[in-house]
């Protein structure tokens, strides 16, 4: 009897780790009238806190707003980090991840991804004039965030470097400012975001060293086809109507702190 109790407990335990535990999210979302999304609160300009209103705003937020509007429900934002976003989705605390998440084959085994809604590449942020090529970083300390692809790419590109993983990128940037690491590595768009918000940005630069492509997708629980289709349809519609490009321009246009070129279009994959 006792043994079966333990087996049952173990099974229940394990059930919590698996993704597809909560049924049809799209129907639930519509019934509740709320779409709960996990967005980073420390990753400008994708998701960050506005000082005066103390609301989370950014590129990821605007996409989620559009999706919630399309579904005809309210949007509720939960703050996540690179390390917490997938467990939060699996636990059912959020319905959708919109947290600068790169689409990878490994992750695609655990969750489903929408079409790419942002494309960037991984680079380095350094003190001006200290790093010109990848060789300059061999054996050095490099800061990044826990549970990110940036961490794994950096370990691959620079096997002898010491990779220091923090809970978020601004902490890594702070370590760079204080000379504790020689570079911060993550996606160019986020590095630009960090730099754009820094009070002393003239002291730093992003050298042209690209170690990977990083297509971002929205994360959905595995097998949650209804929500996935609705999200993908909305993304395509937003591309067609020009809304997607408009959101890009709002956060990455020439007049922003983080000017970037839009080198991609959202398309069916």
């Amino acid at each position: 009897m006792k043994r079966w109790g333990i087996v049952l407990l173990a099974l229940v335990f394990v059930g919590g780790l698996s993704a597809a535990a909560w049924g049809d999210t799209l129907a639930d979302v519509k019934a509740k009238g709320v779409l709960v999304v996990g967005i980073k609160d420390s990753a400008p300009p994708f998701g960050f806190i506005d000082q005066t209103t103390r609301e989370i705003i950014g590129y990821d937020v605007d996409f989620c707003k559009a999706i919630a509007k399309k579904l005809g429900v309210k949007l509720e934002i939960k703050a996540v980090t690179s390390a917490t976003r997938m467990p939060q989705l699996a636990a059912g605390n959020i319905d959708l991840i919109a947290a600068t998440m790169t689409i990878t084959a490994e992750r695609a085994k655990q969750i489903d991804f929408s079409y790419t809604y942002f494309l960037t590449g991984q680079k380095f942020l350094t003190k001006k004039g200290t790093v010109n090529a990848l060789v300059d970083l061999v054996g050095k300390k490099i800061g990044t965030a826990k549970g990110s692809t940036s961490e794994q790419n950096a370990a691959k590109a620079l096997p002898t470097a010491t990779i220091l993983s923090f809970d978020d990128y601004p902490s890594a940037f702070l370590a760079l400012q204080q000379g504790k690491v020689v570079a911060v590595t993550t996606d160019e768009s986020m590095l630009a975001g960090l730099l754009g918000k820094a009070p002393n940005k003239e002291a730093f630069e992003i050298p042209d060293i690209r170690i990977s492509d990083e297509p971002y997708g929205l994360g959905i629980r595995k097998g949650d086809k209804g929500l996935l289709d609705a999200v993908n349809a909305t993304l395509l519609e937003m591309e067609k109507s020009g809304e997607a490009a408009k959101i890009f321009g709002k956060w990455f246009g020439p007049k922003t702190d983080t000017p970037l070129q839009r080198t991609f279009k959202i398309m069916a994959q």
Partner: peptide, 20 residues
Amino acid sequence: GVAEITYQARQVESYTFKGF
């Protein structure tokens, strides 16, 4: 960022999704 046992366990989790 000190890579002690809890840090490493979490690293293994985020690389393999084998948190348990």
